[in-house]
């Protein structure tokens, strides 16, 4: 029963997200796309639009991405016992 309910939950969430994603399609103005693809070289001196976006236009995104990695490592250090602790627990 528990497995069934959890599977049902997962499937419901999946279907809901997919439905929202497909039904509610926002028509974006192409202005941002056109602006970035035509002016990124002048603005940032990068020859690669993705580098320009990551390091200039959307810098906050990159910063918080780096923070996520730090958070993950801190969590791992906090909750995984080291091999030394395991050895002590064994004895």
């Amino acid at each position: 029963m528990r497995y069934f309910l959890s599977a049902l939950l997962v499937l419901t969430v999946f279907a809901g997200v997919t439905a929202v994603g497909t039904l509610h399609q926002e028509q974006l103005e192409p202005s941002i796309f056109l602006y970035i693809t035509s002016f990124f070289e002048r603005d940032t001196a990068a020859h690669n639009a993705i580098a320009a976006i990551l390091l200039n236009y959307r810098m906050y995104d990159t910063m918080f991405e780096a923070l996520i990695l730090l958070t993950a490592i801190i969590g791992m250090k906090q909750f995984l016992p080291t091999s030394k602790e395991l050895r002590d627990a064994d004895e």
Partner: peptide, 28 residues
């Protein structure tokens, strides 16, 4: 780019090695 590269390299390396060294004594 250099800063992000070294940061990601060290970070993912630490994360993976942390799991790799997580071996216990064999008994466990």
């Amino acid at each position: 780019d250099l800063l992000i590269g070294v940061q990601v390299g060290f970070g993912v390396g630490v994360a993976v090695l942390r799991f790799a060294f997580f071996e216990g004594t064999g008994k466990t």
